[in-house]
């Protein structure tokens, strides 16, 4: 019973973080913030989901379920290492490639047409 509540809580938390990630990817203005949203939210929500699944499998305890639990924990560890590293590598490459970043429109009174600036940014990214 207590495991069920824990599993449901973790799954709902993961779903909330997934929603946040999706909204972030769509709504954020430039390359760096979008990759940031994707990297952080995606990692945390995937870890939440897989952790919930591993707990759910451990509910009826046997040798086979323990094996599946260990495999799921290994996948969680892998994602926990690999996903932030990939995000870091992408952002590093973008920084070295001089992808322009977004600044607040009030800081740049000369460039009033901000939408074209963002479009230009996206063009530079999609090499």
């Amino acid at each position: 019973m207590i495991i069920d509540i824990l599993v449901i809580t973790m799954m709902i938390t993961g779903l909330v973080f997934f929603t946040g990630t999706t909204v972030g990817i769509i709504r954020f203005p430039d390359f760096y913030t979008r990759v940031h949203a994707a990297g952080k939210g995606d990692t945390l929500s995937t870890v939440m989901f897989l952790g919930a699944m591993s707990l759910y499998i451990l509910r009826d305890f046997s040798g086979e379920s323990l094996l599946t639990f260990i495999k799921l924990i290994l996948i969680v560890l892998y994602i926990f290492i690999a996903s932030p590293t990939a995000t870091h590598a992408i952002i590093d490459a973008g920084y070295e490639f001089r992808v322009p970043y977004w600044t607040r429109p009030s800081d740049k009174p000369s460039n009033e047409d901000d939408a074209t600036d963002i479009n230009k940014t996206m063009e530079d990214i999609s090499i």
Binding site: A82, T85, H88, E96
Partner: peptide, 20 residues
Amino acid sequence: HFRPKREGRDTILRGAAQSI
């Protein structure tokens, strides 16, 4: 180049590669 032009890569990538 689509990658950093500086010599080698940074520590995070190397550490992740060493562990993976």
